[in-house]
Design a protein around this nucleic acid. Structure first.
Lengths: 158, 158
DNA sequence: CGTCAAAGCTTCGCGTGCTAACTATCCGCT
DNA sequence: AGCGGATAGTTAGCACGCGAAGCTTTGACG
């Protein structure tokens, strides 16, 4: 274990801790902003995605939100209940359900600024330009590596 | 809006997306590892923290897990039900409840490798040493800035 | 000494989020 | 045509996770 030295583990810990913190806070901030409009965080996320695409299937929405289909079902149930979106069965493929915002949902989406992450924007702009670019670059690499690693494991494990 | 230019928003988006992805995956991996021992992710986290400290109050545990007290209550309820920890009222301050792992809980904690984040270790060690150091440095700054920004907002808002 | 705000936990209600199991539909292959 | 696996959604059951409201205990302050 720890072939590469103990300080790697320290970095892992620090990075993980920072990521967890940043994620938690980003969700909290989003939630707070959503709340001001009578919505929840995921609902705003979904509405904003729909606003961009107009119509999406449940699975497409789920993919863009990194959520499983059963989660999306529940989310959409509540959004439909609250008159934000409408389900419509696809004529092409009867398994598929298309989702579109209602006028009310669309209006609400438009009224919510994308600045749910103002806090991050503030923090990120306070970084130097170089640091920001570096962060983007390295995080992208990291995400890609993790993706690959997970794929590898799944193909081994099963 | 976007006083500082559109490419900042792009960076924010990319960084946020990467963070969400990494967080989601880290939780998934942790959960999977926990599952193999019949536990949930947060339960492992709590046990591991308790393993390090021996005894903690509920609020101290909550602080270390970034969880609210009502969340901790439920988590500890289930862990107590499953014989992993024990609640004990503090003699000094009768509001406080001390938490300690049962022998079974302690044994379980010891048997679970900290390597729930093996995937990350793999990905991170595949980064160059410099990139890893850079990432740690920048993320730390970012987390600190966000912390400050949030404090600032809370003192303004209220 | 009494009051009263604050701290520590719990309870309740709600909204995620996941896995497992199930239904309906589609599609490839024979 | 029809079998059989894959795909899209739903349902059920569980564990978080949070905010609001409530309880007990503490400690500060008049």
């Amino acid at each position: 274990m720890a072939r590469t030295g103990a300080n790697v583990q320290t970095d892992v810990d620090r990075i993980l801790e920072a990521i967890v913190y940043l994620y938690t806070e980003s969700r909290r901030v989003t939630k707070e902003s959503a709340r001001a409009h009578g919505l929840t965080g995921p609902q705003v996320t979904a509405l904003k995605i729909l606003e961009g695409f107009g119509t999406l299937s449940l699975s497409e929405l789920g993919a863009r939100m990194s959520a499983k289909s059963s989660t999306v079902t529940g989310l959409v149930d509540r959004m439909e209940r609250d008159g934000l979106v409408r389900r419509r069965r696809s004529p092409d493929d009867r398994r598929v359900i298309h989702l579109e915002p209602t006028p009310a949902g669309a209006a609400l989406a438009a009224s919510i600024p994308v600045t749910a992450m103002e806090v991050f924007q503030g923090a990120l702009t306070s970084l130097s330009k170089d640091d920001r670019a570096e962060l983007t670059r390295i995080l992208s690499i990291l995400a890609e590596r993790v993706r690959v690693e997970i794929d590898r494991r799944e193909n081994l494990g099963d």
